[in-house]
Design a protein around this nucleic acid. Structure first.
Lengths: 224, 224
DNA sequence: CGTCATCTTGATGAGACTCAATTGCTGTGG
DNA sequence: CCACAGCAATTGAGTCTCATCAAGATGACG
């Protein structure tokens, strides 16, 4: 499994000189992202599947889940968007996925048509590179889904630790159900695997949302 | 999970006989595709993981598998490239995947920097849209990997039928092992599921490589 | 017709899902 | 401060799907 730095690192494109209500130079971002600031309560919908894809988002605070409903009450979470992530630059006109706030979320929103409509070579090239990064991420996720439950969980923990700042103490923003739907497992399997990891001394679980990685190396090797 | 077949590469012709420069309009693409023509024997390698990604390919004849080796003899096929497909426009400098001819393959090969280097807005935009299409495909594939074995198989059959011209008679270019590695199943499960589909009257199997879709609607609904 | 690879079929077991019960956490009201 | 409700998470028991191991069948090719 590759260790390519599948960018949790968002990338801030020069999107839009849109209706400039806010200006935020985000750390980690080379370029500033301009857009309207907006907040969402837990489980509020940022956008839904099929809706016109005319905005690009950058997360200032909180976490977002991007998912698709599969009928019969099943749901597949395609991505977690965390603080600093830029997302929503789909190529098509309509959203492929739903996006929902997991906790209290604050985002910057920029109009997309100011970007795509603009005959700006550099901008389109940035968009292409953003798509390519996203592609890599999804490929990584597809590989993950071909592994065993412990491997998926290890993969998930390492990914979250890295994306949340690289600390061994991970504060998960999402409930077990979200993890399950992201990894293609049942909620019980997620819970049991955490328990087994703890029993093996790989992690500690002070609370259900706080995970301490005690042996990141073993977790890392578990899925390579 | 899956058994490997990588070492079994008896008569892998070194490299095709490519001298003649060809010119081909791509049906799926707006712009023409210029490049050298080249042929590969079954199991010959078009390019390998880590190698510089400086070429773009278009398949004139045959089928190609794009895969990654996962240690312990496991292999994950990420995509099948069929006649008419254009692939290999990775954003990075190095190949993320291996590409191998499945049967006798003929491709057009174009240098990538002649494409990407071109400061042509339309060209970059095309590349972006190609990446976005690829992204969609991989997202679809990730959804597939979260389903049951029969659903994956149904999905695969529908996809192959569509991509090979939309006929109900599908001539599969790849062996069972490739299908298994593509769907994240064992070769036996692939075989059994075909048998069960045939018993249910969903398909016929005149030979192992020829599949007749007898009830595409049911196959379609199976994974929706 | 024998050899080899591919494919199919059968038997068995491990891993993950489901259903169900229990525990733990948080907030609310007495 | 405690009791309780409501929700999330855990744990247990049983089941099912699919991987694995093993044995035959089929088919291609010399």
């Amino acid at each position: 499994m590759l260790r390519q730095t599948v960018d949790a690192r968002p990338y801030a494109a020069p999107y839009g000189i849109a209706v400039r209500t806010a200006f935020e130079p985000i750390e980690k971002s080379v370029q500033p992202f301009r857009g309207k600031e907006r907040t969402f309560s837990p489980n509020a919908e940022l956008f839904s599947e099929g809706e016109p894809a005319d905005c690009v988002y950058k997360i200032i605070r909180g976490a977002v889940r991007s998912y698709k409903v599969l009928g019969e009450g099943r749901r597949k979470i395609e991505a977690f968007r965390l603080r600093g992530d830029v997302f929503g630059f789909d190529s098509g006109k309509a959203r492929e996925f739903c996006a929902e706030a997991i906790d209290d979320v604050c985002v910057l929103i920029a109009r997309r048509n100011t970007v795509v409509g603009a005959a700006d070579y550099e901008t389109i090239r940035e968009l292409w590179e953003a798509s390519a990064r996203e592609l890599k991420r999804v490929q990584q996720h597809a590989l993950l889904l071909a592994m065993t439950a412990p491997q998926r969980m290890a993969c998930f923990l390492i990914e979250m630790s890295r994306r949340l700042g690289g600390h061994p103490i991970v504060e998960l923003p999402m409930p077990r159900q979200d993890i399950a739907d992201y990894l293609g497992l049942s909620i019980e399997t997620v819970s049991r695997t955490f328990a087994r990891f703890e029993a093996s001394g790989l992690i500690s679980l002070p609370t259900s949302r706080h995970i301490v990685l005690r042996d990141a190396d073993v977790l890392q090797r578990m899925h390579e």
